[in-house]
Design a protein around this nucleic acid. Structure first.
Lengths: 211, 211
DNA sequence: TAGATTGTTAATCGATTAACAATC
DNA sequence: TAGATTGTTAATCGATTAACAATC
């Protein structure tokens, strides 16, 4: 079982690696990757131990083989499908943002309960009414959901998603949503993050004056 | 010095408390708040120790006084101003999302380098050209910036923001941006979060089959 | 009072980093 | 070889939780 943090960093290493390969790199050292990812070299080496490809003390890590190893660890071979639930301002932006960002993770559907928003294509993705949730998720074999509904509806919609067979939820509603143990759920609380920044900005400014 | 995590949870407690007060609650216990916030009661008690208001073993915490205490800890008395940098799909959505969400944290300006997007009002906020960044930040006394520019531009724009006197940055570009020690920077890597959910959704599904 | 809840300390837990023998 | 880098373990660090005397 690989930790959440390690998986997160692997996704970052992959992106960095893709850039390096595009620029012609054929090998790299742990400390180079560490610098670019903003972590320690020991962290990088520790993380890379899980991908099943070993570097060599002489040549470091071969870029292509390392990328292959990370892909083998992170990706579902046949690809995965996802959906966005709620196509208000944030939902539409996330739809656009996530569409085509990574091959192997396809945006297959969008849903909303407002009939004014359904029955049309938004950012290349068909928007269905919530009544069709179960049918479409089943037919399209969707496993991952991006939840962008208002806070009051979040828990209820999450429960419905779980009943429909979704096994991963990325929740943007500013309430901590609960789900069964067999469903992976990550909460991104934008308001919390903004308020944290506002608090520490104040603090940083004060520190700056004192220093 | 209060930890990042504690500050984050205090913002959550405040929101929950606001809801409870609206519903008529005048007092609450640590375990009630813990349940609603999805944390342990010990965690809540520990967090609340920093706000300078003590509960009593008999009556728990008085809702209004606790809210007052949290406000006193988190909020800058005169309020704070923020800006969004980059008004593409994501930037515009964040502009709409953060506008008016909390009194005391005002969206004062938006910026973009594309002249087609500047000189107009988006979601109630004037959009300036990047050339006006320094002047407007100074005039409006903006301290917090939400960074929603493409990855390639992120570090460069962040550096510019710091030079203009910004002391808190919420970065949405999918690269880890670096800033000086006197600037608080939080990275929200949406792609990383999505890929993590996709990975563990696969895992969760496998666990479900095995179980 | 008796009992529930508080503030607070000690124990636990998990993740990160430092260190080092093995290796090319 | 000599030296840099690897995989991996031990030490460190920080945050969370369990426990409990104090309290209303």
């Amino acid at each position: 079982m690989i930790s959440e943090k390690t998986i997160g960093r692997l996704t970052l290493y992959r992106r960095i690696l893709n850039d390096l390969i595009r620029e012609g790199s054929d090998s790299l050292r742990s400390h180079e990757l560490a610098k670019l990812a903003g972590v320690s070299a020991a962290q990088v080496r520790r993380d890379l131990m899980v991908v099943g490809y070993e570097g060599s003390p002489k040549r470091g890590y071969e870029s292509l083989k390392l990328l292959e190893g990370i892909r083998g660890t992170l990706d579902e071979p046949g690809g995965q499908k996802m959906a966005v639930i709620g196509v208000g301002n944030l939902g539409r932006a996330l739809l656009a943002y996530f569409t085509g960002r990574r091959p192997g993770l396809a945006m297959a559907a969008a849903f909303d309960k407002d009939p004014a928003r359904t029955g049309r294509v938004i950012h290349g993705c068909h928007c269905y009414h919530m009544d069709e949730l179960e049918r479409v998720i089943e037919e399209e074999d969707i496993r991952v959901a991006v939840l962008a509904v208002p806070a009051v509806a979040a828990q209820q919609v999450a429960d419905k998603l779980v009943r429909c067979g979704i096994s991963g939820i990325l929740n943007f509603a500013p309430v901590p949503v609960q789900a069964s143990q067999h469903v992976y759920l990550e909460n991104i609380d934008l308001t919390m993050s903004l308020e944290k920044v506002a608090y520490f900005a104040r603090d940083a400014k004060a520190a700056g004056i004192t220093a």
